[in-house]
Design a protein around this nucleic acid. Sequence first.
DNA 1: GCCTGCGTGAAACTATCCGTCAAAAGCGAC
DNA 2: GTCGCTTTTGACGGATAGTTTCACGCAGGC
Lengths: 138, 138
Amino acid sequence: MKLSVKSDYAARALLGLARSFQTRAVRRAEDLADEQGVPANYLVQILIELKAAHLVNSVRGKEGGYLLARQPAEITLGDVLRAIHGNIFDSQALTDSQCPPVLRNAWEKMQEAVSRTANAINFQQLLDEADRSKMYYI
Amino acid sequence: MKLSVKSDYAARALLGLARSFQTRAVRRAEDLADEQGVPANYLVQILIELKAAHLVNSVRGKEGGYLLARQPAEITLGDVLRAIHGNIFDSQALTDSQCPPVLRNAWEKMQEAVSRTANAINFQQLLDEADRSKMYYI
DNA sequence: GCCTGCGTGAAACTATCCGTCAAAAGCGAC
DNA sequence: GTCGCTTTTGACGGATAGTTTCACGCAGGC
């Protein structure tokens, strides 16, 4: 049961965009990629998926780039995971009739636990937390 | 983020073994496989891993088979997942220095949530729950 | 019209998962 | 001892999904 790096990349990109949300500045995909240590060409694909999920908007042409579609507080890790994979927690067992109902219930319980904690983490919190830990160095 | 069928198979096998735990009966791998709808040759490998994790014991030779190593109440879903995959929740991000610390914290939070709920589900509960729902049909 | 950067699809590469098979080895019974 | 049953172990191959790169088309500003 592993999290794909893709979702991690997506989260990093959104975190980067959240940082520049107040200034309304658009960020070029390549800059974001460099800043976050993500393969540029790969990040482009990810950004497209994030746009399809209405988490980011894009501006074309010169001076173009990406920006958050909503307030950082309105975007959760759950949104990111759902945008990247269809479902946060996937298992063949959930649709396999051979799987004992009791076990299916158990898997669903775990699915729910993951969703709930992912939905409880939004990007405003992450920003605040980052600022707070940075203050220790001042 | 998906659960492998392997872990599901493992859980099914353990559930089957838990059912016959009171009678101390050993179960042949093939019977277990048929009963739980798992490819027999595959289940064999899984059972070996479960044995290495000290969740089941085996008896060789004629009249041989597998049996639970401990009380069903002492075996949790977390044990199963850890036996099959090394870690319940794996992510490259957790060891990637490029990943912002704030995000790593978030992933760790999710990891912890998964572990906690998996550790909270043991096989005695599953047995009881199965019995209870079966009673509705009597 | 030209430059910049987004948009999209396809190809290559990798890793891991699934499942099968065959041979080795332990155990009990006759 | 040897025969049959069952676990044990390792190797193998196909399938699937994840990762990455590349190439080219499209839109908007200057």
